[in-house]
Amino acid sequence: MSAAGPAASRLAVWGDPIDHSRSPDLHGAAYRRLGLDWEYGRLRVDEAGFDAALDALDDDWRGLSLTMPLKERAHARADLLDEDARLTGAVNTLLLGEGIRGFNTDVGGLTSALLAGGLGSARSARVLGGGATARSALVSLRRLGVDAVELRTRRAEQAAELAGFAERIGVRATTAELASEATPSPVDLTVSTLPGTATLPDAVMTALASTGGALFSAAYAPWPAPLVAAWTDAPVVSGLEMLLHQAVRQIRIFLHGDAEQELPDEAGVLDVMRAALR
């Protein structure tokens, strides 16, 4: 695969499931605003089929957005990684060319989403789920000043691994089973990385909502998810905010090769992307 030049105009989001993804709406609106004749689609690709699908791409392809369950596989295939991808072991953006560059824009996207939602002042948090997005959430929370977190996962080994990661980045972590009915200690913020279809016993959701502070739910389809519906007395921020802000960083990468270099008329690009979500 040669370097992605001006003729490399194909992009897509891959994952499984993928039909719910709003990324084509966001990217399409941004490319039109920027005057870019780029095509951005979606394709259902599972973990077993990822390597073959990636190897089949030709020089028309500029890059990929990756969602679950592909973030670890993308990390393994990248030749070069940005800091957040190295730290979390997860890649949600691939820039294709002579080498494959991997980025994690979820960290910055979540940070921006929490700040935009007025949730950036939390000092204690609960993270639900134990996958790649949970690791990105921990990095984002640490950078916002959170120094204590409760981790709730379905499997004990997942909790232990995630707790070890939290400790390595300077966050004090405790763990509990996701479906535990014991009333947890209060926290300022809950970050749920669970799928939108995930269900928990009513008593568990009530306990989490009553002690969980504000809620950020990384999932946005279906909406409201059962957990979101239980959150009746505190602010809730949808995962669409994270999707929006991480997508801006992806577009910077696809255009400039740099997640920190702003787009031309970035405020206007953000406006049309947000309108596409409505």
Rank of each mutant, 00 (worst) to 15 (best):
residue 123 R to M: 04
residue 119 L to K: 07
residue 110 L to F: 13
residue 57 L to K: 02
residue 111 T to D: 09
residue 84 D to Q: 13
residue 84 D to A: 12
residue 84 D to C: 05
residue 61 W to A: 03
residue 86 R to P: 01
residue 87 L to E: 13
residue 81 L to K: 04
residue 105 T to D: 10
residue 52 A to Y: 01
residue 94 L to V: 06
residue 81 L to C: 01
residue 77 R to C: 07
residue 110 L to C: 08
residue 88 T to Q: 07
residue 63 G to H: 00
residue 95 L to H: 12
residue 103 F to M: 01
residue 73 R to V: 03
residue 71 K to T: 05
residue 69 P to T: 06
residue 120 G to M: 10
residue 67 T to R: 03
residue 118 G to N: 05
residue 54 L to S: 02
residue 120 G to V: 08
residue 114 L to T: 11
residue 80 L to T: 14
residue 113 A to E: 07
residue 68 M to N: 03
residue 89 G to R: 14
residue 115 L to D: 09
residue 65 S to A: 14
residue 62 R to S: 08
residue 67 T to A: 06
residue 69 P to Y: 10
residue 98 E to K: 12
residue 121 S to M: 12
residue 75 H to W: 15
residue 72 E to H: 11
residue 60 D to R: 15
residue 55 D to E: 15
residue 55 D to S: 14
residue 101 R to Q: 14
residue 53 A to P: 00
residue 105 T to F: 06
residue 100 I to F: 09
residue 123 R to Q: 13
residue 95 L to E: 11
residue 77 R to P: 00
residue 108 G to W: 06
residue 93 T to M: 07
residue 88 T to I: 03
residue 100 I to W: 04
residue 99 G to A: 13
residue 75 H to E: 01
residue 64 L to I: 06
residue 102 G to C: 11
residue 122 A to W: 10
residue 83 E to L: 14
residue 52 A to L: 10
residue 86 R to E: 15
residue 66 L to N: 00
residue 121 S to H: 11
residue 54 L to A: 06
residue 84 D to R: 15
residue 71 K to G: 07
residue 52 A to I: 06
residue 119 L to E: 05
residue 109 G to H: 08
residue 91 V to F: 09
residue 53 A to F: 07
residue 82 D to N: 13
residue 115 L to K: 11
residue 88 T to P: 04
residue 89 G to A: 06
residue 113 A to T: 08
residue 110 L to A: 12
residue 57 L to P: 10
residue 94 L to P: 00
residue 108 G to K: 04
residue 114 L to I: 09
residue 78 A to V: 07
residue 103 F to A: 04
residue 70 L to W: 02
residue 75 H to N: 05
residue 72 E to P: 00
residue 106 D to I: 01
